[in-house]
């Protein structure tokens, strides 16, 4: 697998989990697919950063709770790297408060470890190949669960078009899908999304979806 010039068709995945059984299990699942390659594994956040630098994965499958450096901080630092991969957070429990923090740190989506092999493969492929937000329904639930604890955040003034784009984006559509829904070009959507992220003061689509739900714009 340590090919100097990796096959661009193959999605390179790094699996990070402190539990060897989970790590090896995920590696076995991901490694069984033709279009995926597990380029490495790591058992804590520090290892994960070093492995990302060295192995340049497309997707990092990241556990949240780990010794040394947890998944939240590791995600933050990995995403600060040049040509950062996308991060999929995997978690044992649905009610894990760290998941929200991991998403705020820039992870592109989260998945329960028990969701099943199909879901894991779907998530990794979606992250590697599209710009869509993963599992928007799960994000909605996560936000709803936290809603009681914090005041609603206000959304800045958005144009009608931006509102439309945000609505579609929050349902998990890709730029291309949004473009075809709105009968505009993909480049136009891209610039709308960029403007949207800037106005919302967020760094990625996942955070935009969180903002949409937290403000009550989506419910």
């Amino acid at each position: 697998m340590a090919d100097d010039r990796p096959d661009p068709e193959v999605i390179r995945v790094l699996v990070v989990d402190d539990d060897a059984m989970v790590r090896d299990g995920f590696a076995a699942i991901l490694g069984s697919q033709e279009d995926l390659a597990v380029v490495g594994t790591a058992d804590d956040g520090v290892d994960a950063i070093a492995a990302t630098r060295e192995l340049r994965p497309d997707v990092v499958v990241m556990d949240v709770r780990m010794p040394a450096l947890d998944g939240i901080e590791a995600t933050r630092r990995i995403l600060a790297l040049p040509e950062a991969p996308r991060v999929l957070v995997v978690t044992t429990f649905e009610h894990d408060s760290y998941v929200y923090d991991a998403l705020q740190a820039g992870a592109s989506g989260f998945l329960l470890k028990r969701a099943g092999a199909e879901q894991l493969l779907l998530a990794v492929r979606t992250l590697a190949q599209t710009d869509a937000v993963l599992f928007p329904a799960a994000i909605r639930e996560l936000v709803a669960e936290r809603q009681g604890r914090q005041s609603r955040r206000a959304l800045p003034a958005l144009t009608a078009r931006e509102q439309e784009v945000l609505r579609l984006l929050a349902t998990g559509l890709t730029n291309a899908e949004i473009a075809s829904q709105l009968f505009v070009g993909a480049e136009t959507v891209k610039s709308h999304v960029a403007a949207l992220l800037a106005k919302l003061g967020v760094r990625d689509r996942t955070q935009a979806v969180i903002a949409a739900y937290e403000s009550g714009f989506m419910s």
Binding site: D24, G25, I29
Partner: peptide, 20 residues
């Protein structure tokens, strides 16, 4: 937490085995 992690590990192993 401890029981949850152990059960998850079991579940992931079963997922991997089911792929075959």
């Amino acid at each position: 937490d401890s029981v949850g992690h152990a059960l998850t590990a079991v579940d992931v192993q079963a997922q991997a085995a089911l792929l075959h």
